[in-house]
Design a protein around this nucleic acid. Structure first.
Lengths: 351, 351
DNA sequence: GGAAGCGTTTCTAACGTTAGAAGTTCTAAC
DNA sequence: GTTAGAACTTCTAACGTTAGAAACGCTTCC
């Protein structure tokens, strides 16, 4: 950026390097790209000129020429949600490993933003999209995404060629219920379903919950199933409020996300409901904050680095032209047991 | 992106629109930019062609031509820290208001990353940088940043033309100490200072703490001042561990960030130290999680939307060529009192 | 001594956009 | 009916990079 004379000046171009070194543009490119067929002496002279001018290739120029930007967009509803922040972090790191910069975009404000993401940010020369959709009509989405290299996280689409990377949601819910049953819980409530969106994670996990309740012959009542439209702390609080009259009746609450669980626990404690003594609580996502709550929060964990790597593998394959039907990549999950779901002889233990 | 024939095809260019509408490139540009001197009938024809082809101007082409990208980089150590996520969210929203896209980059991994950010991401055609530096030598930073439009958040640089937007750190610390003293606390510990980095927020807040302790004639001991190199939950736990033998001696802990406070509270509770009965705890940043802890966390809050707007005003002024000496923009702060610093009847004044 | 072949460099067009200069057509005034 | 000037359109070069085609100079072989 700063030429040797120390003045602001605009960035050096290939042409400046060529002139200083007394060679042609192509020769400089050949040096920059470490190609054969450049005399050692010429190469040295060009490299010296590059160093002297502080030359850095303009990615805009390259982009225009190659049609590739090596930038992918990560579209999430809000970057300040703990899980999405952790996801963004993992994807940025993975992107670096795979040679891509990750542009994080927030879609939570409007349908328009979501559709723009689904359409691959026309005009922005984005090579692909990693998309965690929220509200957009899946049919419309699938249509938009047909020609955009795209990987979905969180919510599945039935049509289009957008691959899907996630844990086995149904199985993880079975595992959660089994863990609670192992701890002696018998009357387990669930929050997070939304029948109007059958492929949403909340609904998939509800299916797993139902299956496990059947398999383990646990009690089950329809009014132990609570819906919520957002996986937020506020929703969790609201749900806990509704459940207060049923404490004593239920002995565990499965929350489709840690945020729901955090909101619920806070409200329980405010009303002198003890967690886990009176109600066990468990969530999904294993966000860091869960470890520092009192009681610390049990949760279903994913290896985000692995998830991010698989995401990039799938996305890069699409970017390179793969047009096979959409594929589902499953990442292993793990139940992290902390205080909030311990059997009632609760002992404190960090992390 | 998707031409009317429904085939993938590459995005329509200005030229395609011109050909379909039967006019020249310039006429299409004039229509796109809503310029005068285009017959109403021609305009209509061009607009129809744009709609038919689904044309979106290529920002890369524009960028190359204009030298401007209308993209600014946000450089933070890690996007998955709650405060930085909230900051990123506020800046993305503010960027939209001001006509800029915000590219979030993580610098936490290496000095190299930080320096690249400080240098304005050469080659990336970034118009400006919003920078929350972590570890880089401020002198080197100032040097790198001399010619990059840049606004600093968090840590102040003494040299260069990088503006600085923040709360009045010293005054906020005074306010915190006064709040604790008002609640009857007299023996207040502080964690977050780092004398080797005199302009770091932790050190500035320490100065404010010291001033308030003097003004209010509170007790003060050197071993109530704890250093830490990272404002993390882990550091907070470690600090609390160190303080365990001094519980009963101290009655409050001021933490330079909410993460420190969260780690400290968790460790206190694990060791049956009651918060706020035995020790009051308070932090900075007002991260959302603080509200859902038990006890909920008192904190110094900033209006992030306001901070983000001021940041963009300053940055845009630099992008437009303002070369005045670095300026400091101060944003109001507010003490949010929650459970962790409430006065208790158990708190007695000595003497 | 001339031609073929090799190593190396130069020339040129292209990516998509933009804006100034130049060109064309039309209107209105004398 | 001519012409000035307005209204509108076309032409062209430029932004920085890249790669294929073409050109250059040198060596080697017959």
């Amino acid at each position: 950026m700063t030429p040797e004379n120390g003045l602001p000046g605009r960035p050096a171009r290939l042409k400046d390097v060529a002139e200083l070194a007394g060679v042609s543009l192509k020769t400089v490119t050949n040096v920059v790209h470490e190609r054969r067929h450049v005399k050692a002496e010429t190469r040295a002279r060009v490299k010296a000129a590059i160093a002297e001018l502080g030359y850095t290739p303009s990615l805009v120029g390259r982009q225009l020429q190659s049609g590739r930007s090596n930038i992918v967009a990560l579209a999430v509803p809000r970057i300040d949600e703990p899980y999405l922040g952790a996801l963004a972090h993992a994807l940025i790191m993975a992107g670096e490993r795979h040679g891509y910069a990750v542009f994080t975009d927030e879609t939570g404000r409007s349908d328009e933003h979501e559709l723009r993401a689904a359409g691959g940010y026309p005009g922005h020369s984005i090579d692909g999209v990693i998309y965690s959709p929220l509200a957009v009509d899946p049919r419309r989405m699938a249509d938009m995404s047909r020609f955009t290299p795209m990987v979905l996280l969180g919510e599945h689409l039935s049509e289009g060629t957008a691959d899907y990377v996630a844990i086995d949601n149904e199985q993880s819910a079975r595992d959660v219920v089994r863990h609670l049953a192992d701890g002696g819980r018998r009357r387990i409530a669930y929050v997070g379903g939304n029948p109007s969106r059958p492929s949403s994670v909340g609904q998939l996990r509800l299916e797993g919950y139902r299956a496990a309740v059947r398999e383990l012959d646990l009690e089950s009542r329809d009014d132990w199933l609570l819906r919520c439209d957002r996986y937020s702390r506020e929703s969790g609080s609201a749900v806990a409020e509704q459940l207060l009259p049923r404490i004593g009746e239920i002995d565990a609450l499965v929350c489709a996300s840690d945020l729901l669980a955090i909101g619920a626990i806070r409200t329980f404690i405010e009303h002198q409901v003890r967690v886990p003594e009176d109600v066990a609580v468990i969530g999904w996502d294993n966000i860091i904050d869960g470890r520092y709550l009192s009681p610390s929060l049990s949760s279903v964990a994913t290896d985000l680095d692995l998830l991010a790597d698989k995401t990039f593998e799938a996305l890069i394959s699409r970017i390179e032209g793969n047009r096979d039907p959409a594929r589902v990549y499953t990442v292993a999950h793990d139940i992290i047991v902390r205080e909030s779901s311990r059997p009632t002889s609760a002992t404190t233990e960090p992390g």
